[in-house]
Design a protein around this nucleic acid. Structure first.
Length: 840
RNA sequence: GCCCCGGUAGCCCAACGGCAGAGGCAGUGGUCUCAAACACCAUCCAGUGUGGGUUCGAAUCCCACCCGGGGCACCA
């Protein structure tokens, strides 16, 4: 298609014979209503409103370039809910801001030899203008940016408060390192051994870093998911449960030959302890280093060196042979008193449990492979099923060899099922003082230090004499030094460390020479509390006004991408719980309900530059207008499903909007005319549509709402053209309902309709149409008569017909009599007023 | 391997355990036009992934399997 042939749908205005425009000018409408809305400020949330409050939250974006299809989809869906609440008479808080710290700005700054703020704030302005034209009902007076000093001042304040409570601490440990971005990564940011952001293979480094003690809240974070199950997407709840990864088992102490301290292992299967034929320790743990004998040290260190060179990718591949080194010491099985060898290996993780595991090859496949590799004995402790052909068996079955036949042991669990055997073993260990029941979590503490510039400086000073010293609260915000371009190039240490004027300071305690912490915070810290700041964005006496936060929180809906299922959502939940424990919040969960939108894809594939299948939002908006694009995204299907743009028809959406708009021009009755006495059939459709639309919006079934509005438009069109005519007050009632319902998704079209119907702006605050309950009851319904489940007749009956009357009527019907054909009626099921089923 | 979600016309999607179709896209036929595009009007189209079960009656509930999407995974 050559460019001249591309039709300009949005601008097109055709005239009918009566000089009555058949379509309205989409672009002119956009230009016309934006200033009106600016003047009316219909979506400004009033903290002191007597109306019931609703908090409609959608994930704030990172300012990279202009808005794209993904932003368009999530905000269009979100806006249906926010605008619906306004129409229903709630006071709605619907704020927006930017998550404006982060790596892309820093990389752009290096590329262009400029300050990251230049890129950041230019993009924010671009996105802000696009959002405005896109007509989302945001309260712009509450706009915030996490990179503003007046915002990150409070991020630093919260960090210091967390630190005072022992929830922010430094420790030295092997951490995930992205060699490309030259910074550490949280566990959550490593996906399949690669950096979530850039895809580089992640390696390990031994570093001293800041952590948030999220593990202290692991149990509560898990427990509260039960209460969120009804209102959060199942996949998010499942993902968080998986990530927290609670397991129940026992700590068991093994005495070590020639060492005072025993070694404690964590196991989920204490009942298999009789099958423990060796012990394995994480090779990269301090414990392994401590246990190894002088004779074995050279072999151990060589092995450890070999392992350190591996990337995460290599370590995670499960199909390679097991490796390890004998540490040269022996441990004593506390139940059998047997001496077993102690090995170091890389298949045991240093930072989970105790970093040491009892090797039970009969019950654990990894141990089986290790035992096979090194010729260690294998003892089964659970009876395998008759048809078992596998190796290690971890299923249900009676305990065997516990103890082995003929062997003497102070404990005997033979014959017990797994659960009973576990309990008996733990009881025994507890009595002996060599073990205890224990719970473990997969969740690790949250590594928050980043060796980059464009983030929140960690407000701590390191002094040779006083150690870690907090920057005094009255010196916050601790602002970033002015660095740009080449200063920001990744060097493996934070660029802040090289800013000598900034990093060298006097110790606040002793006045001696000291240095600032040169790392910045993970940007997930910024987004863990922004929804609280929105409740009082200008507040200067704390991160937020406690009374206002308590008035608005929790958010009644949080709309956003499922890619944040564990990261952001888990961190935000953690922050909320800590703030509650600090007495600053009443709620312990930030998001009462949640909705995840799907992706916008094209031709069955994710949009990408390399595939060349990207759909540009700006082009779509220019061609079809804001309303048609929004309508297309909302109508496409259930919100959580992916939308394939190739299957969609924004032109069809625009056609529908024009059809709807045309109704408003056809209405001839005066504004304010009572619908009483209007065509009852149409009034019923209107009432039913308005009534059902409310339920459908609340169930997030926006696509069905649109379908129902289309039906209403069709019914109204018919009434005008071939029914009661344009002067019927029922037609006005219907057209006005269409305008209000459309205001949830097509604000410009709805406003045009509302004006043409003789009303003042803005339709967005017109209020939900009143529904006469009498109109929801049908005058007559069609009852279906089935013979053997097949429909044989239809009867028009009153909706409140009795079952007996309906049965009688059905059996008397000529078609029914013919269908029964003299056979004996064995049973008649009657479901008045809809159905009769005759069984013969 | 374990756990979640989903399979309905050519396509996107509807359907309190009760007539499989609400809406849209595409298609087809008309109206308009010198002709076409746009627009408008009309119309065609499946028995619900497979196999069992429960029920008077199953797209819907239960079981198994297949396919697709997602989460966790050397976490002891």
């Amino acid at each position: 298609m050559c460019p001249e042939q591309i039709r300009d749908h949005a601008r097109e205005t055709t005239m009918s014979e009566h000089d009555e425009p058949a379509t309205y000018d989409v672009r002119a409408a956009q230009d016309k209503w934006l200033p009106v809305w600016d003047r009316l400020q219909p979506f400004r949330a009033d903290d002191d409103s007597p109306r019931e409050k609703k908090y409609a939250l959608t994930m704030f974006p990172y300012p990279s370039g202009d808005l794209h299809m993904g932003h368009a989809e999530v905000t269009a869906l979100h806006d249906v809910i926010a605008r619906y609440w306004w129409q229903r008479g709630y006071e709605v808080l619907n704020p927006m801001g930017w998550d404006s710290f982060g790596l892309p700005a820093e990389n752009a700054a290096i590329r262009n030899d400029e300050h990251p703020a230049t890129y950041t704030y230019a993009n924010i302005e671009t996105q802000y203008e696009s959002f405005r034209r896109y007509g989302i009902s945001f309260d712009w007076s509450r706009r915030l940016h996490t990179s503003d000093p007046e915002y990150y001042r409070w991020t630093q304040w919260l960090f210091l408060k967390f630190r005072e409570r022992g929830l922010a601490y430094r420790k030295n440990s092997p951490v995930n390192w992205c060699p490309n971005d030259q910074t550490v990564l949280a566990n959550e940011q490593v996906v399949d051994g690669r950096c979530e952001r850039c895809g580089a293979e992640v390696t390990k480094r031994e570093l001293t870093q800041w952590y948030f003690k999220i593990t202290e809240y692991a149990q509560e974070l898990l427990d509260e998911l039960d209460n969120l199950e009804a209102t959060w997407p199942a996949r998010v709840v499942a993902a968080q449960r998986n990530w927290i990864g609670r397991s129940e088992g026992a700590h068991v102490s093994f005495a070590i030959d020639g060492r005072d301290e025993p070694v404690t292992v964590y196991t989920t299967r204490p009942d298999t302890i009789f099958g423990t034929t060796f012990m394995v320790i994480a090779v990269d743990s301090a414990l392994a280093d401590d246990l190894v004998t002088d004779a074995q040290r050279p072999a151990f260190e060589a092995y450890r060196e070999e392992i350190r060179k591996e990337t995460e990718m290599e370590r995670l591949s499960t199909d390679r042979p097991k490796t390890g080194v004998d540490l040269g010491v022996t441990a004593t099985n506390p139940v059998t008193a047997e001496q077993i060898p102690v090995w170091a290996t890389d298949y045991v993780l240093a930072d989970y449990g105790t970093g040491a595991v009892m090797g039970v090859p009969g019950g654990d496949q990894r141990d089986w492979e290790f035992a096979t590799e090194f010729g260690l004995p294998i003892v089964r402790t659970t009876q395998t099923p008759d048809d078992w052909e596998g190796e290690a068996f971890h299923g249900e079955g009676p305990a065997i060899n516990s103890p082995a036949p003929g062997a003497a042991a102070p404990l005997d669990i033979n014959g017990l099922g797994v659960a009973d055997a576990k309990r008996a073993t733990i009881d025994f260990l507890e009595q002996r003082g060599s073990g205890t029941g224990a719970v473990n979590f997969r969740l690790r503490d949250w590594l928050l230090s980043r060796q980059r510039y464009w983030g929140v400086p960690i407000p701590v000073i390191h002094c040779a004499k006083d150690g870690e010293v907090a920057v005094p609260y009255d010196q916050l915000p601790l602002e970033l030094p002015e660095l740009r371009g080449a200063d920001l190039k990744p060097k493996g240490v934070s660029p802040l460390a090289a800013a000598e004027d900034w990093v060298n300071v006097e110790c606040p305690t002793c006045g001696g020479p000291a240095t600032r912490d040169s790392d910045t915070m993970d940007t997930f810290v910024d987004s863990s509390w922004y929804f609280l700041r929105f409740c009082s964005p200008g507040y200067t006496d704390g991160p937020f006004d406690v009374a206002k936060a308590n008035a608005w929180m929790a958010a009644d809906i949080y709309v956003g991408g499922v890619e944040h299922a564990v990261l952001h959502l888990l961190y935000a939940r953690f922050f909320t719980k800590v703030l509650r424990d600090m007495g600053m919040l009443e709620v312990g969960e930030p998001f009462a309900a949640q909705l995840n939108q799907g992706f916008v894809i094209n031709q069955g594939k994710k949009m990408s530059k390399s595939l060349g299948n990207g759909v540009n939002l700006g082009d779509q908006l220019a061609e079809f207008g804001v309303d048609a694009v929004r309508l297309t995204l909302v109508f496409a299907g259930p919100p959580e499903d992916d939308i394939d743009w190739a299957d969609m028809s924004p032109a069809g959406s625009l056609r529908f909007l024009q059809r709807a708009w045309r109704l408003s021009g056809d209405v001839t009755s005066a504004v304010g005319t009572s619908p009483e006495g209007g065509d009852v059939a149409l009034r019923r459709v209107t009432a039913r549509t308005v009534h059902d639309a409310a339920e459908l919006v609340e169930a997030y079934r926006f696509n069905v709402v649109i379908a129902r509005v289309m039906e209403l438009v069709n019914a109204t069109r018919k009434a005008i053209d071939s029914g009661s005519g344009p002067a019927d007050p029922a037609v006005r009632e219907a057209a006005e309902a269409v305008a209000v319902l459309l205001s949830l998704v097509a604000p410009y079209t709805a406003e045009e309709m509302w004006e043409r119907l003789g009303h003042q702006p803005t339709v967005a605050r017109a209020g939900w149409p009143a529904v006469d309950p009498a109109l929801l009851v049908e005058e007559s319904v069609v009852a279906v008569v089935q013979i053997q489940g097949k429909v044989r007749a239809r009867l028009e009956v009153s909706p409140d017909i009795s079952e007996a009357d309906l049965e009688q009527l059905a059996l008397a019907d000529a078609d029914v009599v013919r269908a029964i054909d003299g056979r004996e009626v064995r049973k008649v099921i009657v479901r008045a007023p809809k159905l009769v089923n005759v069984v013969v």
